Simulated assay, not measured.
Amino acid sequence: MRPYPLKFKPEMKERVWGGRALGQFGLELPDGPIGEGWMIGDHPNGTTKVVNGELAGMGLDEVREAYGETMFGTKGSSRETGRFPLLIKLLDCNDDLSVQVHPDNDYSGLPEGELGKTEMWYVLDAKPGAKIIYGLKPGIDRGSFAQGIAENRIMECLQEVEVSAGDSFYIPAGTVHALCAGVLVAEIQQNSDTTYRLYDYDRLGLDGKPRELHIEDSLNVTAYGGSGATRMKTDVGAPNEWLPLASSPYFIVEKGVTEGSWKLATSPDSFTIIVVCDGSGTLEWTDGSIGLERGNCFLLPADLGSYSLNGRLTVLRSYLP
Rank of each mutant, 00 (worst) to 15 (best):
M12G: 10
P239S: 15
G291I: 01
E114I: 00
G35H: 10
T230V: 01
F72N: 11
V161R: 14
R153M: 13
D287W: 13
M58I: 02
W242K: 05
N45F: 05
K13R: 15
V236R: 13
T266Q: 07
L283F: 12
R15Q: 11
L6H: 04
R20K: 13
V253R: 03
E119M: 04
P138R: 07
V176W: 00
E259A: 14
L179F: 05
I88F: 03
V163S: 12
E14M: 05
D200H: 10
G18C: 09
Y67Q: 04
T81A: 10
Y319M: 02
E151Q: 15
S168W: 02
L264P: 06
D42C: 10
N152P: 12
G35M: 07
L243V: 03
G311Y: 13
P210C: 03
V315Y: 13
T195A: 05
G295C: 01
S261E: 15
G37D: 07
C93A: 15
F8I: 04
N45D: 14
Q100N: 04
R64D: 10
K9H: 12
C157H: 15
T194P: 07
L206A: 09
P138C: 05
V253M: 07
G208E: 03
L204E: 03
I252Y: 01
K7L: 06
S261M: 14
S289R: 08
P249F: 13
L22Y: 03
N296Y: 08
E119Y: 04
Y224Q: 01
S270M: 07
L213A: 04
N220A: 15
V183S: 09
G57I: 06
S248H: 14
D235N: 05
R20C: 02
L204N: 04
L55W: 11
C297F: 06
A178M: 13
T194N: 08
G32D: 05
M155Q: 12
A223L: 06
R64W: 06
G113I: 12
G174D: 09
T48Q: 08
Y201P: 05
S267D: 14
V101L: 00
L60Q: 11
R312K: 09
E259N: 13
R20F: 03
T194H: 08
I40A: 05
D106R: 15
K233L: 03
T118E: 03
D235P: 00
E62S: 08
G23A: 04
V183I: 13
S318T: 04
M1T: 14
T194R: 10
E241G: 06
S280I: 03
L304M: 02
G166L: 00
P301C: 11
R79A: 11
H177R: 04
G116I: 01
L110P: 01
W17Y: 11
D207L: 01
F84R: 10
K255P: 02
L313M: 08
H102V: 00
N52G: 02
